[in-house]
């Protein structure tokens, strides 16, 4: 898989913190952050997920000139009913070497991990796929490791 370059920016961090409803000044107030223990603005713990913004081929972002599977004139912009509910996120794990900061330019490399299957009463056969992403900074130093597990279901999950 190609490496992705992920520039960490203060505005992006501010917007991310807003979306999770986190008013901690360390995510948006440079002056307050400077006086805090961490000495400047840092990114929230799950911010690295926003690397998707920098993946040119990310499949869950509409792209000009390409069909999008969400609704428009019809419930789905892709012919026929989608084969399943598509992928869902089952697990996410992070290991931190240091916090991400505005000005960091990260290089992210994702490798496939394990794959396994399980039967579920609520959604039929589940197929799990692991992906491990290493985030390195502008000096080549490893700053964090992310391990995500995605699951595809045979049918939509019963609300239960």
């Amino acid at each position: 898989m190609a490496k992705i370059t992920f520039p960490v920016e203060a505005t992006h961090i501010m917007m991310f913190a807003r979306a999770i409803g986190d008013t901690n000044p360390v995510y948006h107030d440079a002056e307050a952050a400077k006086k805090s223990e961490v000495g400047g603005i840092i990114a929230p713990p799950s911010f690295a997920q926003a690397v998707a913004q920098f993946d040119p081929d990310y499949h869950l972002r509409p792209k000009p000139g390409q069909k999008w599977f969400g609704s428009g004139a019809t419930p789905s912009g892709v012919e026929g009913k989608p084969a399943s509910s598509g992928g869902l996120h089952a697990e996410q794990h992070y290991e931190y070497i240091r916090p991400l900061r505005p000005g960091d330019v990260l290089t992210c490399e994702t490798k496939p991990g394990k794959t396994w299957e399980r039967e579920s009463k609520r959604a039929g056969k589940l197929t799990f796929r692991e992906r491990v992403t290493e985030y390195r900074d502008q000096n080549g130093e490893l700053v964090m490791i992310a391990r995500g597990v995605g699951v595809t279901t045979e049918r939509p999950v019963d609300a239960g």
Binding site: L60, R61, G70
Partner: peptide, 24 residues
């Protein structure tokens, strides 16, 4: 959250798709 994370999956952003095409 979709806008900032970049994950615009219609399952999170599009009620028509999610109810009528995906079955949630």
């Amino acid at each position: 959250y979709a806008g900032v994370s970049g994950d615009y999956n219609p399952l999170h952003t599009d009620d028509v798709y999610t109810r009528e095409a995906a079955g949630y």
